[in-house]
Design a protein around this nucleic acid. Structure first.
Length: 546
RNA sequence: GGGCCUGUAGCUUAGUCAGGUAGAGCGCCGGGCUUUUAACCCGGUGGCCGGGGGUUCGAAUCCCUCCAGGCCCGCCA
């Protein structure tokens, strides 16, 4: 704990003189302090339409890491997560039944959630909540606990009223900003507020007048009415809504995807609109796309990308955080749930085992930059802020767990194995249990790399038989005979192997190579005695004598 | 058409903003550990920093230009 505090202090010291040598989140925190002072509000948002992807995770983690960096730098920081629950249902998604046609244009907060068949279920709560819930659970797994703000509640609470009034009073200016910056032409009947019609949809509703706080409308059914701007009876159009909420919540930082960041995109129009409505906007900050690819055919039409929930079911959360923390924001991330996961885990574990020390004196500028960046990435990758990275490994390497999970079918056997090898004392912590669960998911999925898969043969392959020397064959025969009397434990089997080998005229290496050849069809592998143990006495003897 | 980002070793990349001898990890090769956590340790291999031009004593870094890739400009992060 004290060490962590010291490191944060040290980072801050660096920042004063060598701001450029910081991790991007720390750099941003420092920049925010200079521009906006001690109070910071980091923000990210999501539309709970049900279509989530990893880009959302990148956005959220970027904001959350900046928030953590602000806290680490001693700033008074909040991280808010705005749910666009007032956004309308735009189309009938593939996972919805046609019955949702009737809800198009209605705010997601006000329409029913689908049941398992995709039909509206009046007893399942709101659509927005329904999809938000599992997403928030996923966020909790990666250590993200935002202040959740449902945008429809902000409308219902009247917090938007002044902004709405301001936008309507300055409708011409708003229009001018959007048209000149985005380059697109707005319809003549464009109005900076979209009231809900008689059927609860904002589609086909025309504004007929404004008398604060009421927006009068006429809808496609010929009905007319008035929307109270102090309530959730309508909303601002996206480009204005976004700009308005910056002011309402005092947002000082909100990373946006590069679609919003493009010239003329919603960030560019948001900045002047936010000022038009009387508030100071956050500085423009844009992050690149992220893509996580998996193996095999996926439901998604665009290649075979893996969604955030599925990714989290396979990838350890700190590794996912590290993927984001270790990449610069403007860097496109291509990741896969195959071999790259092993590599990323290796890299992470190397850093944990041998933490970079930015304070070392004999470092070149380059090395110091790397050390600072890496130690920042490690710090921000922890699920719990301030936690010791060593704890995240729970004492077991990713590769070791991959092996154990394959040869031990029961979790208890894995724990026993870890106890006997000294990796574990007592009962496994929840973190370790989850690691194993994810590992099993991964191994059981098509994403697990084929060459990391252990295929235990049930009999000697003919090609393999040809490779074996006379001595090796003799060894295998003798071993088979001996195994029928050997105590069936990992250790005893190992000892038997080592005892028999010399008597067959071969060294230990050749003996093991022979064993691996017949068991796995390869000349190397995980601990041989452990595999034999797992195969079981009878099957093992059958294999060796086949 | 307008704009943004990227191009450095076989792969992933650091360094680019404030120019000062190209760094790292993985892979690969060799050796060690009298042999197993696909581990670990030591050594080695490997880059005209996308091409060309310019500024400079000096350029991966700044300027111009070209090439290649990705993306945005319809509320898809």
């Amino acid at each position: 704990m004290r060490l962590t505090e010291f490191r944060c202090e040290a980072l801050f010291e660096w920042s004063l003189s060598e701001v450029e040598l910081m991790h991007w989140a720390d750099f941003t925190a420092e920049k925010l302090r200079k521009e906006r002072g001690e109070k910071q509000v980091a923000c990210s948002g999501i539309t709970p339409s049900g279509e989530f992807h990893l880009g959302h995770i990148r956005e959220i983690l970027s904001a959350e890491m900046i928030h953590r960096s602000c806290l680490d730098a001693g700033l008074d920081s909040r991280y808010i997560f705005i749910v666009d629950s007032m956004d309308p249902l735009r189309r009938v998604y593939p996972f919805l039944s046609d019955e949702y046609e009737q809800y198009i244009g209605c705010p997601l907060a006000f329409i029913p959630a689908p049941d398992s068949d995709g039909n509206p279920d009046p007893n399942a709560g709101s659509y927005a909540e329904h999809f938000l819930e599992p997403f928030l659970e996923a966020l909790a797994e990666i250590g993200v606990f935002p202040e959740v703000i449902m945008n429809h509640e902000t409308y219902a609470g009247g917090q938007f009223t002044d902004k709405v009034d301001s936008a309507i009073e300055q409708a011409d200016e708003s229009r001018e900003i959007i048209e000149s910056i985005s380059g697109r032409e707005l319809d003549d009947d464009w109005f900076p507020y979209k009231p809900l019609g008689s059927d609860g949809s904002m589609d086909g509703v025309t504004v007929t007048g404004y008398e604060k706080p009421y927006v009068h409308w006429k809808d496609r059914h010929g009905e007319s009415g008035s929307a109270d701007t102090r309530k959730a009876e309508g909303k601002l159009p996206w480009r204005i809504d976004w700009a308005a909420r910056w002011g309402i919540h005092g947002v000082t930082c909100e990373p946006a995807g590069k679609d919003h960041g493009a010239a003329g995109g919603s960030f560019d129009t948001g900045l002047p609109i936010c000022r038009l409505l009387g508030s100071e906007p956050p500085a423009k900050m844009v992050y690149e796309w992220i893509q996580v690819k998996g193996a095999g055919p996926m439901s998604s039409s665009s290649g075979n990308t893996v969604g955030p929930i599925e990714t989290l079911s396979l990838v350890p959360p700190e590794i996912l955080r590290y993927l984001i923390a270790g990449s610069k924001m403007n860097r496109h991330i291509d990741f896969n749930t195959g071999p790259a996961l092993f590599q990323m885990a290796d890299e992470y574990e190397r850093l944990v085992a041998d933490p970079p020390n930015p304070e070392a004196e004999d470092l070149t500028k380059r090395q110091r930059v790397a050390a600072i960046t890496q130690s920042g990435a490690m710090r921000l990758s922890q699920i719990e802020r301030g936690a010791d990275p060593v704890d995240s490994l729970a004492g077991v390497s990713f590769r070791h767990l991959a092996m154990l999970a394959q040869i031990k079918t029961s979790d208890d056997d894995v724990w026993n194995s870890l106890r006997s090898s000294g990796h574990l004392t007592g009962e496994p912590k929840q973190a370790l249990q989850q690691r194993l669960a994810r590992m099993r998911n991964w191994i059981g999925s098509i994403h697990f790399p084929e060459d990391a898969r252990i295929h235990i043969h049930s009999q000697i392959d003919e090609n393999v038989r040809g490779e074996l020397s006379q001595e090796q064959s003799t060894f295998l025969q003798k071993l088979a005979g001996e195994l029928s009397n050997t105590e069936w434990s990992d250790e005893a089997i190992g000892s038997t192997i080592r005892t028999i080998a010399p008597g067959c005229g071969i060294g230990g290496r050749e003996a093991y190579v022979a064993l691996y050849w017949v068991m796995l069809g390869r000349n190397y592998g995980p601990k041989a005695s452990a595999i034999l143990f797992e195969i079981g006495r009878e099957a093992a003897i059958e294999l060796l004598t086949s």
